[in-house]
Amino acid sequence: MTQFLVLLVGKPPAVGAQDAVTREYNAKWMAWMGDLAASGALRGGAPLVWGGRTVAKESVTPLEMQSMDVGGYLVIEAASAEAVAEILQSSPSIQIGGEAIIRECVPVG
């Protein structure tokens, strides 16, 4: 099995939103993540704070976020990138128009 880094790309979160639509979406995420963990494929992941820093040799600047940007990551263990893509098709973010970037991890050690 191979590990894959998945970058979840979507719109910025509605921080602190408690409306019914947001609560339902969050519940779908919790259920989907629970199923992924129970399958044994989930190796890690987390949502990301919207914003950050860009570090270069001689500067550190605020990250210029786009209207659709990386909002979280997952590490998934699977037989192939195609298998990861199949898993992601049912994710709540993909279902509402988000995207995901899949990158194979190079084994170290």
Results as ranks from 00 to 15, higher is better:
88 L>E: 12
86 E>I: 07
34 G>I: 05
12 P>Y: 10
37 A>E: 12
13 P>E: 09
2 T>R: 09
77 E>N: 02
62 P>Q: 06
102 I>V: 13
63 L>W: 15
47 P>L: 00
8 L>W: 06
33 M>P: 02
52 G>I: 05
93 S>Y: 12
15 V>W: 13
53 R>T: 12
13 P>S: 08
30 M>S: 15
23 R>A: 14
57 K>W: 12
82 E>G: 11
90 S>H: 12
36 L>Y: 09
106 V>M: 07
66 Q>P: 01
51 G>D: 07
36 L>T: 09
80 S>Q: 09
26 N>S: 08
74 L>E: 07
37 A>V: 03
36 L>P: 03
20 A>Y: 12
32 W>V: 01
14 A>H: 14
3 Q>L: 03
105 C>N: 04
57 K>N: 12
34 G>C: 04
43 R>N: 06
43 R>P: 04
89 Q>N: 13
33 M>C: 03
54 T>R: 15
87 I>W: 06
54 T>G: 10
95 Q>D: 11
11 K>Q: 14
71 G>H: 02
106 V>N: 05
71 G>M: 01
19 D>V: 03
90 S>M: 05
23 R>H: 10
94 I>N: 07
43 R>K: 13
60 V>Y: 13
99 E>C: 06
6 V>K: 01
97 G>F: 08
20 A>H: 12
33 M>G: 06
76 I>K: 00
65 M>Q: 09
24 E>Q: 14
58 E>F: 11
4 F>S: 03
105 C>V: 12
11 K>P: 05
36 L>A: 03
50 W>G: 00
82 E>I: 07
29 W>A: 01
66 Q>W: 03
107 P>G: 00
91 S>Y: 09
90 S>E: 13
93 S>I: 09
101 I>S: 08
44 G>F: 08
60 V>L: 08
23 R>F: 11
22 T>K: 03
71 G>R: 00
3 Q>P: 00
103 R>N: 07
99 E>Y: 14
73 Y>M: 07
92 P>K: 00
58 E>N: 15
35 D>P: 00
93 S>V: 10
7 L>K: 04
101 I>N: 07
53 R>S: 14
61 T>W: 10
46 A>G: 12
76 I>P: 02
83 A>L: 07
34 G>R: 01
78 A>R: 07
37 A>M: 06
107 P>A: 04
49 V>R: 02
90 S>R: 11
53 R>M: 10
91 S>K: 01
8 L>E: 08
24 E>Y: 04
85 A>V: 04
62 P>C: 01
76 I>R: 00
